[in-house]
Write a protein that binds this DNA or RNA. Structure first.
Lengths: 343, 343
DNA sequence: CTCCCGTGTGGTAACGTTTTCATAGAGGTA
DNA sequence: TACCTCTATGAAAACGTTACCACACGGGAG
């Protein structure tokens, strides 16, 4: 690989001048510039980013830590982030933490050594106090899918509102006995979705029954088991609101195996709006989160922090959107074949 | 951030000694080592990878270029690669090329500037000659999902064999008029799958009819349209072998909308084994590719090239596996659908 | 006694950039 | 003429490591 010195030698100038041409900084004569550029071309020179990073202390690299890229909620977040990063000349380093705090910490430390310019944490399990404590020695951090009150960027969607809309929809479909398969207890968003569920029941004057809530962990198999448990506890069940789509899909499977008809016997609503939700049978009503936008916005926030040096921390809350499909439309469930929206 | 100099000063030794402790290279006295280690701890020192990379010319970073992380075939490949990379102390830089040759080239160049130690190309559209031509000036490259004959690592699964098994399965189910929704023409794997399809028909003594093949591009909507076209051309259709699962899922949707029963009227088989395939209705028979393993093996190959300096290029071919589900089993297809509960 | 080798340590030149400072000519102004 | 400013350029010091070389000490072999 040719270096800046080779270019300088070939063009008959000093490395300083080549550097100035490269960065468009300082004065450089028109004709020398052309000479330099042609040397660059003929040597097929590409500046070494590592060397550049060492002196500028910027790597144009952003670390993205998420639980598991295999989980269909995350790829779109990543895509949003990567697209936006690429536009701005940044690269993304991907890390899978498996919802494991320790692994998250390891990755954070690796990223710090790697001198990334920023970090995006999706669905982190790290405590707010820990995050705030490391923020001082870290490049800017954006937390997605979790609201951090203090000195840190965060992006989330309004889980309470989304869950409230989902449960409200089930009520509007005539369901009165509505179960909830919740997310993991430590998860803030899971708790918020539960809260939205309770709030909707409250406002409809329906008492909250603890036995109608089964704890899950966002995985498909758990959703299936939870649905079975729910049916065991309350055979009269009319609707299930699941804290995410994967569990809802597991629930659909259980219902089918137990010969319940969806939505006629039991209506089901999920959460997240993963691509798969549209193609299960019956197509799953779900609360769509703006995942792509979340990744995109995260990069924008980091960019503002890094390049514009904007110190104010932003807490962005995006709106989730209830997308009604067949799994919950009891009124018009048989005749109305193509009511679902296509994007 | 503390540097190696700070550590050296605090421990009362030279930077060389600290470096030796850090890398476990050369002689260093037991007690000095402890003194250095405790200085490292008390300063919370972390070696700067950028500086290290500049001199060692190794970044412990691997670039992974794929078409679109949002496409459910890829996350598992990425996960396999990332897990294996993490074990070995490497990081992954993720790039989405959108099946766009130009974007692939841009990313390759960026990765080269970034001095990655290796590159994984998944489903690249770049020509073999181009790849071979850049290989000389590049870090080691592994091509996944494409066999490169020449001087380059490659990992693929046997597409002909997989497609042959899929089509053979449809024949075994009694299908005689079997359509094929193919992948993009430029794609080698797509052509191979077509070849396996033809071969199976051949051996069963069934003539190959060009009108039973509709060209697709691996996307769901195309699969849907292609299925419609296939039904228009040949209403007697008994089976469809799709070159990937997404198109198969699109086909299922079309068949449902056109009131064909799957698998009784038309049996459907997909390819890839994406997670979603299990949860559509009816569950999709598919040729499962060992995606996780492909990513994993790719890293192993790169690792051998980088650290062990093994020069021989390997062409690994993994076995795909036909996973039979309801979308193609014509014998026992009805019972489940009509067993709904009445109360 | 001398030589050599194993051990332990420090000094310093890389690595490929950017950045800061110095220099110098050209042209304008007082 | 003397001085300043603008333009154009080069030299050299960073950036934080590793790697190479030099040196010193002790002890065993000859």
């Amino acid at each position: 690989m040719a270096t800046i010195k080779d270019v300088a030698k070939l063009a008959g100038v000093s490395v300083s001048t080549v550097s100035r041409v490269l960065n468009g900084s300082g004065y450089v004569d028109k004709t020398t510039e052309e000479r330099v550029l042609s040397s660059i071309r003929s040597l097929n020179y590409q500046p070494n980013r590592i060397a550049r990073s060492l002196v500028t202390r910027k790597t144009k690299t952003i670390g993205l830590i998420l639980p598991d890229i295999t989980n269909p909620f995350f790829p779109e977040v990543v895509r949003g982030a990567e697209d936006e990063a690429h536009k701005r000349g940044y690269n993304i380093i991907l890390c899978n933490s498996d919802w494991d705090e320790e692994k998250e910490q390891v990755y954070l430390s690796v990223l710090q050594q790697q001198c990334v310019d920023g970090v995006i944490l999706v669905g982190t399990k790290l405590s707010e106090s820990y995050l705030v404590s490391i923020a001082a020695t870290f490049p800017p951090i954006v937390v997605i899918d979790r609201t951090i009150a203090l000195d840190m960027h965060s992006i989330s969607s309004n889980n309470i509102q989304g869950a409230y809309a989902a449960t409200g929809h089930l009520l509007a479909q005539g369901c009165r006995i509505i179960g909830h398969i919740s997310g993991p207890e430590q998860s803030v968003s899971a708790r918020q979705r539960m809260q939205g569920y309770r709030q909707a029941l409250d406002e409809a004057g329906i008492p909250f029954l603890p036995e109608l809530v089964v704890g899950g962990d966002y995985r498909m198999t758990t959703g299936k088991a939870a649905a079975a448990e729910l049916l065991r506890r309350s055979p009269q069940l009319e609707g299930i609101f699941c804290a995410n789509d994967l569990m809802a899909i597991g629930a659909l499977e259980q219902l089918r195996e137990a010969s319940f008809r969806v939505p006629r016997d039991v209506a089901v609503v999920g959460y997240d709006g993963i691509a798969m939700s549209r193609y299960v049978y019956p197509p799953l009503t779900t609360v769509v989160q703006p995942t792509y936008r979340m990744g995109e916005r995260a990069i924008q926030l980091l960019f503002d922090s890094i390049e514009r040096n904007q110190p104010e921390f932003q807490h962005i809350e995006l709106e989730p959107l209830l997308e009604i499909r067949k799994s919950s439309t009891r009124r018009a469930c048989d005749e109305n074949a193509s009511r679902s929206r296509h994007r």
